[in-house]
């Protein structure tokens, strides 16, 4: 599974996984009553879980970028590998920004149906 195209999308694959996980956790948490709206909003266990999940995946994607950059060695022709390296970096940076942007709401927005 070392195909350059798979490495190219790796960071966004992590984003997709995060999306699935965060959305599923949020829905499951509401269904099982983890949000506990009796106490102050920031002490809700569901919110804490979601925040931890989001921060962890943010670290994971930044780690992915670092790993991609370190293991990048010109395998094919110079031009092809510079192309893949550059696009890979753009995509990973986009994925990092997307993760921070998409999931920022877990810090304060209403967690469960009223």
């Amino acid at each position: 599974m070392r195909h350059p195209l798979l490495l190219l999308i790796l960071a966004f694959v992590v984003w997709s996984g995060t999306f699935l996980l965060v959305y599923a956790t949020q829905a499951t948490g509401c269904s099982l009553g983890w949000h506990n709206d009796e106490i102050a909003f920031w002490r809700s266990p569901l919110r804490l879980i979601l925040i931890v999940l989001v921060l962890t995946s943010l670290v994971a994607i930044v780690g992915t970028l670092a790993w991609l950059r370190r293991r990048h060695k010109p395998a094919a022709a110079l031009q092809t590998s510079s192309f893949i390296g550059e696009v890979k970096t753009y995509v990973a940076v986009a994925a990092i920004f997307s993760t921070a942007f998409c999931f920022a709401g877990v810090f304060w927005l209403t967690l469960c149906p009223l």
């Binding site: 190219l8 999308i9 966004f12 984003w15 997709s16 999306f19 965060v22 959305y23 949020q26 829905a27 509401c30 979601l50 696009v87 753009y90 995509v91 986009a94 994925a95 997307s98 998409c102 999931f103 920022a104 709401g105 877990v106 927005l109 209403t110 967690l111 469960c112 149906p113």
Partner: peptide, 27 residues
């Protein structure tokens, strides 16, 4: 490539009014 991925993360914007909690809508 980024667009392709993001486009799979916005389907609920057709469902903002079905009673999904706000935090989920925010994603």
């Amino acid at each position: 490539v980024s667009m392709a991925f993001l486009s799979f993360g916005l389907w609920v914007h057709h469902m903002y009014t079905v009673g999904i909690p706000h935090v989920a809508l925010s994603f």
